[in-house]
Every structure is written in structure tokens, then in C-alpha cells.
Design a protein around this nucleic acid. Structure first.
Lengths: 219, 219
DNA sequence: GTCTATATCAAGATAGAC
DNA sequence: GTCTATCTTGATATAGAC
């Protein structure tokens, strides 16, 4: 268990990372259907047959990339939670009442997701591919992380709803879906492709429309 | 020009409608990549070779379906405009000040688009297909209608922004993109697939989050 | 374990009979 | 003008040498 990995294992690990990284980039830029396994192999610098020894299908490749992306999201969320806990303790020691607003955490996650998309590092999969969906749903590593992330976000969502920071009449699932949807929002992509706006500006705008709507008057 | 179409022309027209209708359904349900020309031919009830005599490529098929969808959207918008004009005249005759709020028109369009999606009749195309995008951008019928629809909506958008019903700090294009995005919103599809909510309920919720945001408290 | 070369197959597109 | 049968291509996946 705690044994130091051998040189060979480390090389394997590096190669796997190269593959998953290539898949991640290609999924983020071209999407699943346009991504070919030949491209992945060329990008990762190995022969296609070698790649198929490690990942038995294109669908498994996509699953590995999604697991990586979910891991990054979970790491970001856990970092937020750790910071919030620290801030709470400091505030309690000082003057109390320092709980970090749940809605602020949700906005931070949305910001992170949109920034990731703007950097071309957010892999996205087609919603209407039944074979791929089936493969993902039987992928335990993927489902575990998806559930873990959903659970963590759902806690903040219900907290923000009971606290009156989010509309309590909306089903929590709708809020959750909306946040996931912002991670691959075509509006973000269109604004980016227009080339007129900075990433910061795009994120601010879409975040504003997501939480406050198109009608909101800046105060 | 005004001549009555021959029987033969009418038959052709019926057949074309059958083809475009099949493409529309398939694009709405499976998406462009998963749609095969064999399916289209089978669905429309003719041989693939005959289909290729009428539409020289799969991309042209998609373009024809999109033109149809844009025509329906334009018809809906023009109907709204006609009704608004009528209402204004009636109000002016009575007591004046009866201008229909531009934002109400935009909400009506968003409602119509989401209802169309929920009925499985909103064709959608992949954003990341350069060959298909190129084909559409050189499709005059498509571009004409896309511009016409964008122009009509943009008038309402700037009107609502100067009237203070929409946030005037947002670029009008962002508002336009957001409305187009709602027509194929994955959140709508997910809520529908959950099977828990009525179409009316889904539309109300997503409309509320679009214009008033996730934070809005129902008054 | 990695590569070259190939099998296999699905899907877009076409030829040619009627 | 429509159909059956076929061509062609590109992409997933694999066999077999080294």
C-alpha cells in the first residue's frame, strides 16, 4: 500500500496523464464526436494500438477525462470548504457570526467552471448519445465523483434556499442542473468567440444573469 | 407566378415536407451526429437515392430543417407584433398609454421556444462542427431568416433595456444569445426527462431563472 | 509493451436499371 | 423520378511482429 511506486509505474502514470490530458483538451475544443482516437494517440505521442491496451474503448477514454475534470471540481470545492471553516473559526474567536454565505460558495464554483471553460479545459460530452451515457453510468469512478460533487453542491443549495439567498420555491435539482449547465454554456463560448470581451468580463456577466437574471438592475 | 401548382408539384411539396419533418424530429431527438440519412429516408418513406436527388448532402438536410424552424419562430414573432399593434390601437382609442412591454414579448418568445423543445420539435445542431457551420453560413435562406429573427428580437431587447425592464449594462448580444440558448437548454431537457414536472411548470421555472435569476424571491 | 499494418464496419454518397 | 445495389471513406478496433 505505502510502497514507493517503481520507475516503470511512474512512467506508466506519466503516459496515462498525457493521454487523459489530450482527451480533455480534445473534448473541450472539438467535442466527443469530432474527436478521433487517432488524434488522441498522436497528441499523446504513442501508437493507437498501445493506447487501446490501456483504454479499451473511446468511451472509456471519455470517462477517464470526465473523472479527471470531476476530481478537479471536487478539489476546488473542498478547498472552498476548508477556507470557509478556517474563516468561521477566526470570526468566532473575534466576534462571532462569521459563517460564509452558501450562495457565495456556489458563485465561486460557477466562476471556476466558467473560467475552466474559457481556458479550453472543460471537457463536454454530447447529451444525446445513449451508448456513451450507458457507459458512463456503469463507470463506478465516474458515478462516485458525480454523486460526491452533486451532494456537496446540494448542501450549499438548500442552505442558500433556507437562508433566503436563493429562491426557495425552485427545486434544488433545477439549481444544480443550472450550475452544471453553466460549465458548458454556449453563451460563454459565443461571447468568447466574438473576441470582444475579457474572460473576467464574460464571467461577471454570465454570473450576474445566472443568479440575478437578465432583468436585474445593477445597484 | 400566380399559376396554380400542378398535381406533380403538389406531390413534390408533400414529399419535401415529409423529409424536412423527419429531419426536424430526428434533429430534435437524436441530434445531428446520431441522425443518419438512412433513418431520414426510412422515416420519410422513400429511398435514400431519391432523397439525395432533392437534397445533395446531409448538411443541406439540416439546413432545410433549420430554415423551417426559423420560419416558425418568425411567424410566431410576427403574430406577436401584430397583436401588440392591435392592442396599442385599441388602448389609444380608449385611454392611451397601452404599449405592450418589450420584455413581455421576449418572454413570450422564450416560452414558445421552450414549449417547442419540450414537444420534441426544436431541431438543434452541434456548435462545434466547422464543416456544418460553414455550410449553414453559405446557406442564404438560413442566414436571411437568422438575421431577420435576430433583428426583430434585438429591437425588443434594446427597447426593454432603455425602458429599464432589462439590465441596460448587459451587451444586447448577450441577451440575444441567452434567449437562443434557452431554446435548446439542457436544463429543460433534464427536468423533462426526470418526469416529475409538467411542461408548464418547467417553462415557468426556467423563464423565472432566465429573467429574474436563481436568487429571485417570488413576490 | 510498443509499433506497423490490417480487419471491420457504419454511414455518406452514387451508378444504373426500370 | 424512384429504387436496388454498390462504391468510398473514415474511424473504431485488433493481429501479429519485434
Amino acid at each position: 500500500m505505502g510502497a514507493r511506486p517503481s520507475i516503470k509505474d511512474q512512467l506508466q502514470r506519466v503516459r496515462q496523464d498525457a493521454i487523459v490530458g489530450a482527451v480533455n483538451r480534445l473534448l473541450a475544443t472539438k467535442g466527443y464526436d469530432a474527436m478521433t482516437v487517432d488524434e488522441v494517440a498522436a497528441d499523446a505521442g504513442l501508437a493507437k494500438a498501445s493506447l487501446y491496451k490501456l483504454f479499451p474503448s473511446k468511451e472509456e477514454l471519455a470517462g477517464a477525462a470526465m473523472v479527471g475534470a470531476l476530481d478537479r471540481a471536487l478539489a476546488f470545492v473542498d478547498e472552498l470548504r476548508a477556507q470557509a471553516e478556517q474563516a468561521e473559526q477566526a470570526e468566532q474567536a473575534a466576534q462571532g457570526g462569521g459563517k460564509v454565505a452558501a450562495v457565495a460558495q456556489l458563485k465561486a464554483v460557477a466562476r471556476w467552471a466558467m473560467a475552466t471553460q474559457l481556458e479550453g479545459e472543460m471537457p463536454t460530452l454530447p447529451a444525446h448519445n445513449s451508448s456513451l451515457s450507458a457507459s458512463l453510468q456503469s463507470n463506478d469512478a465516474y458515478m462516485d465523483r458525480l454523486l460526491a460533487l452533486s451532494n456537496r453542491l446540494s448542501i450549499w443549495i438548500t442552505e442558500a434556499q433556507t437562508g433566503g439567498q436563493l429562491n426557495p420555491q425552485l427545486p434544488p435539482d433545477l439549481v444544480l442542473y443550472t450550475l452544471f449547465a453553466r460549465a458548458c454554456d454556449p453563451v460563454v463560448a459565443l461571447l468568447k468567440d466574438s473576441g470582444q470581451y475579457s474572460h473576467e468580463q464574460i464571467i461577471d456577466w454570465v454570473l450576474s444573469t445566472t443568479f440575478d437574471g437578465l432583468a436585474h438592475q445593477a445597484g
